[in-house]
Write a protein that binds this DNA or RNA. Structure first.
Lengths: 130, 130
DNA sequence: GTACAACTTGGAGTGAACTCCAAGTCAAGC
DNA sequence: GCTTGACTTGGAGTTCACTCCAAGTTGTAC
């Protein structure tokens, strides 16, 4: 698969794919004899993971560290597990923040909807913040 | 409440609080006669909202826009509702991404845990990506 | 075999969101 | 009234994660 096809498949720019490879977010991609990237199933799996974890806020640094450990071999399985567990904790915390914000948002939207229907926006004392 | 007290209460730096005020993420904070910030309940409510929505990935630009609309008065209630609804959609999408990443993470952690117990890390064909 | 698009590289540039700094002002304790 | 520490401002600097660029190479279509 060419870089262009991977870009289109995952809606990501070629620059980002090359950047991921350059800094080590994914391991070196398979090349043709001419040096052009030719993504194999394994390369694509790494790309998919990178996008997935970046989308969940995992820092580039952490992905680089994971790839580095992976390349060092089976001796790093404990370290990799620890890294993934830490990432998991961070993600769960972040998700909680989303729930809190969504609750706040739904409450505010609800109040505005009532205001739109009645023409009156009523406030409680500790809530003079739009 | 002084800026320091607000910092400690919300675990945020004074620089960030001043930055939020400067760019309009929160409206101008109440001051003492000497010009020093003296956060009132309303100011604090704005700070709390700003932190909450930033934690859920809402861009600073969007918060600035909301405060601007709020300050323009009741005529902007429709616009504010639309803005909040859009923020809501974005947050729900982002939360989905977290769920996908968490599922992937849990699967990988599970595999590593088995590897740690048995000393063998087994792979399926399309999953040679650590 | 030559045009031409798509690829390659290293390195510089960008935007978002802070974060730091210098120079000065304010306020509480002695 | 003077020290000391926390506060003020405008502006510059930093970090993260890309994003763009120039100069050169590869590969396909005529």
């Amino acid at each position: 698969m060419t870089i262009k096809e991977v870009c289109e498949k995952y809606d990501i720019t070629a620059d980002t794919l090359r950047y991921y490879e350059r800094v080590g977010v994914i391991p070196a991609v398979t090349r043709t004899s001419g040096g052009i990237r030719d993504y194999q199933a394994e390369d694509i799996a790494w790309v998919e993971n990178a996008i997935c974890f970046r989308d969940a806020g995992m820092p580039v640094e952490m992905l680089i560290e994971y790839v580095k450990l992976y390349q060092e071999g089976d001796g790093t399985i404990d370290a990799r597990t620890a890294l993934l567990r830490e990432a998991r904790e961070v993600m769960l915390e972040a998700k909680k923040k989303y729930d809190i914000a969504l609750a706040k948002l739904d409450y505010k939207i609800g109040r505005y909807e009532i205001a739109q229907k009645t023409g009156v926006l009523s406030w409680t004392d500790d809530e003079k913040d739009g």
